[in-house]
């Protein structure tokens, strides 16, 4: 064996611990290893999303019809615009981060501080936007009826545009008695209350001749199937079970509940990463301001937290594609 080992350097230099075969410091290399493992975690989530979507590929919600809102533009359908804005914010905060890293290499303390500050602002805007996106998704849009088989029926007028259940339901004196804390030993909360119950929606639907039902199933052109008036009436009478408004982990007015589950889980996990990134950036920002890295004569901590921040941006690029585009 000894003959095959190159002996140009003394053994101590190679194995003594002082040398860097990959020319990266311990901390930076460990950050890369963490990023690889975290990338595999996110890939696991996205691949699981793909698995579930392929299972129900002919009944999956169309993202364009789900995320159509933009703040302050009420009633104006703006599919994709808000998430495009969020993507730009995150890419831009990546740019300020990499500028901070570069200023750190040049030992320019005040520039690093300024760019770190801008990165933190960008991250905060992104997390806030994600909270708004969640709130809009949870609140819902038009409302729908869930069938006994757990499928979603949505309402259209004869021109093919969506109709909100609130605009045609006929309010009645409610006959349902809500289960309350006062008459239950183990009160776990009642069913979620919707603004109208199934009876009211059905009565309104039967009274309006221009309403049709759209099912979750996509036809060969990729559009949800619209039933005829007769079929619609038969469907809601025979299969209707309850009214769904908005989305949560059990029900989803936009379509398959798994879509909502994965949306909450993946964007939530990503949002948690952004939030942690902002927190870490704040810590590093204060260290820059009080001159810790000036005294250390190295801004490598900024570079390491920068790697994490860019990784968060990288994950968003994939989440954006697979949740909103594809």
């Amino acid at each position: 064996m000894e003959t095959t080992v190159a002996t140009t350097t003394p053994e101590g230099d190679v194995w003594g611990g002082g040398n860097q075969p990959l020319r990266a410091s311990y901390g930076k290399m460990m950050m890369w290893f963490f990023i690889v493992s975290d990338a595999l975690t996110f890939s696991g989530f996205l691949a699981a999303y793909g698995f579930s979507r392929f299972k129900f590929v002919n009944a999956w919600p169309i993202a364009d019809e789900v995320f159509t809102h933009f703040p302050f533009l009420h009633g104006v359908p703006a599919p994709m615009f808000y998430v495009a804005f969020m993507t730009f914010v995150l890419i831009f905060s990546s740019v300020t981060m990499v500028l901070a890293v570069d200023a750190g290499h040049k030992m320019q303390q005040s520039k690093v501080a300024m760019y770190m500050f801008l990165t933190i602002i960008g991250g905060a805007i992104f997390v806030g936007s994600q909270a708004w996106e969640w709130a809009t998704f949870i609140k819902g849009d038009y409302g729908a009826v869930e069938t006994r088989g757990g499928k979603i029926l949505q309402f259209l007028d004869t021109e093919g545009s969506r109709v909100a259940i609130g605009s045609f339901a006929q309010p009645m004196q409610s006959t349902a008695i809500e289960h309350q804390e006062s008459n239950g030993v183990w009160f776990m909360g009642g069913n979620e209350q919707t603004s109208y119950n199934l009876e009211e929606v059905t009565a309104g639907f039967l009274a309006n001749d221009n309403l049709l039902i759209r099912t979750q199933y996509l036809d060969e052109n990729g559009h949800p199937t619209v039933l005829s008036r007769e079929a619609s009436i038969a469907k809601i009478k025979k299969d209707g079970k309850l009214v769904v408004e908005g989305a949560n982990l059990k029900r989803n007015e936009y379509g398959h509940p798994l879509f909502a589950d994965f949306f909450f889980f993946i964007t939530g996990f990503h949002g948690f990463h952004v939030f942690s990134g902002v927190m870490i950036n704040i810590i590093i920002f204060f260290n820059v301001v009080i001159g810790t890295y000036e005294r250390r004569k190295s801004y490598e901590m900024v570079e390491k937290v920068g790697l994490y921040w860019h990784f968060v941006d990288l994950v968003w690029v994939f989440v954006f594609t697979f949740f909103y585009l594809v």
């Binding site: 696991g44 691949a47 793909g50 392929f54 590929v57």
Partner: peptide, 13 residues
């Protein structure tokens, strides 16, 4: 991972 899960998902479909 993606290959395995997507093939399986398509099979279940």
């Amino acid at each position: 991972l993606v290959l395995i899960l997507l093939v399986e998902g398509d099979y279940i479909f």
